[in-house]
C-alpha cells in the first residue's frame, strides 16, 4: 500500500496549499477518489468472497480496519487498473467505475457495484493541464467562487460511512455460491486516451431479477462519488 501513503501526502499538500479556505485541489481530490476505489474494490473482493480470505491482510484506514489483498498476482493486476484510473480521473474523463462480479462457470453477471464520479461544474470547465498543475489556481478558483469548503476529516468520515456500508451489505446481498470472478468497467468520455489493455465493452447489466440499493456518497468539493450496488435476486431464496 505504498500508494496510500503518497496519496495521503497529496491530500495534505492539497489542504495545506489552501490553508485559509481549507479547500482541496484537483490533484488532491484525484488521490482521495483513487484511494477510495482501491479500498472499496479490495473490500468488495474480500467481503464477497471473490478471493479466499487468506489472500487479504488488515490495514488501518479511514479509522476503520479494512482488508486489502496481500497476494502478489492480484496486487499487480489491481495496480495496472489503478494506474490507468489515476490517469483518467486526473484527465477528468471518467464518469463511472463499475465492478462486475460474474460467475466463473456461466459468466452470468451476479453483482454490479457502480460508482458514479461527478465532477464539480466549476472545476470541470478548467482545462486539465492548468487545473492539475497549478494548485494555486485551483485554490483560487475555489476561493473565488466562495464554495462550501470541507476538511479532510469530514471527507474521510464520509468515505468511512461508505466502507461500512459495503461491509454491511453482506447481510442483504444474496450468497455467491458459484466460484466468481470480477471485471472492472469504466465509463469515459468518447475522446479519452485508451491504452491497448482496455477495450470497448457492453454495460454488463444484470440480466434478470435485478434489484439495486443506493449507497452513500462522498464529496471532495471537486469530485462527487455516488455508490450503487445492483444484484441478482435469487428466485429460490424468496
Amino acid at each position: 500500500m505504498l500508494a496510500t501513503a503518497q496519496t495521503a501526502g497529496a491530500v495534505g499538500t492539497g489542504t495545506q496549499g489552501a490553508a485559509k479556505g481549507k479547500s482541496i485541489t484537483l490533484a488532491g481530490s484525484v488521490s482521495i477518489v483513487l484511494e477510495f476505489f482501491q479500498f472499496a474494490i479490495n473490500n468488495i473482493l474480500f467481503q464477497r468472497g471473490v478471493y479466499p480470505p487468506e489472500a487479504f491482510g488488515n490495514v488501518r484506514k479511514y479509522n476503520l480496519s479494512l482488508l486489502t489483498t496481500t497476494d502478489d498476482g492480484l496486487k499487480a493486476y489491481l495496480d495496472q487498473i489503478f494506474g490507468q484510473l489515476q490517469a483518467w480521473i486526473a484527465a477528468k474523463s471518467i464518469k463511472k467505475l463499475v465492478m462486475v462480479i460474474s460467475s466463473k462457470t456461466t459468466g452470468e453477471v451476479l453483482e454490479r457495484w457502480q460508482f458514479d464520479v461527478n465532477l464539480d461544474s466549476s472545476v470541470a470547465n478548467i482545462p486539465v493541464a492548468k487545473a492539475s498543475l497549478s494548485k494555486a489556481s485551483a485554490a483560487a478558483v475555489a476561493a473565488d467562487q466562495g464554495e462550501p469548503t470541507k476538511t479532510e476529516k469530514e471527507i474521510q468520515a464520509e468515505i468511512a460511512a461508505i466502507m461500512r456500508q459495503i461491509t454491511a451489505s453482506v447481510s442483504f446481498l444474496p450468497m455467491l455460491n458459484d466460484p466468481c470472478t470480477f471485471n472492472i468497467l469504466v465509463y469515459t468520455d468518447k475522446d479519452a486516451e485508451v491504452p491497448a489493455t482496455w477495450v470497448d465493452s457492453d454495460p454488463r447489466m444484470i440480466a434478470r431479477n435485478a434489484e439495486q440499493v443506493r449507497l452513500r456518497s462522498f464529496n471532495t468539493t471537486v469530485h462527487h462519488v455516488e455508490g450503487l450496488v445492483a444484484y441478482r435476486l435469487d428466485q429460490d431464496a424468496c
Partner: peptide, 18 residues
C-alpha cells in the same frame, strides 16, 4: 449515450489456488 464509451480492462483477473 453517444458521448461516452464503456471500457473494460481486458485482462483476466488472476485466480488464487484455493
Amino acid at each position: 449515450a453517444i458521448d461516452q464509451r464503456i471500457l473494460a480492462f481486458n485482462v483476466e483477473p488472476p485466480t488464487i489456488e484455493r
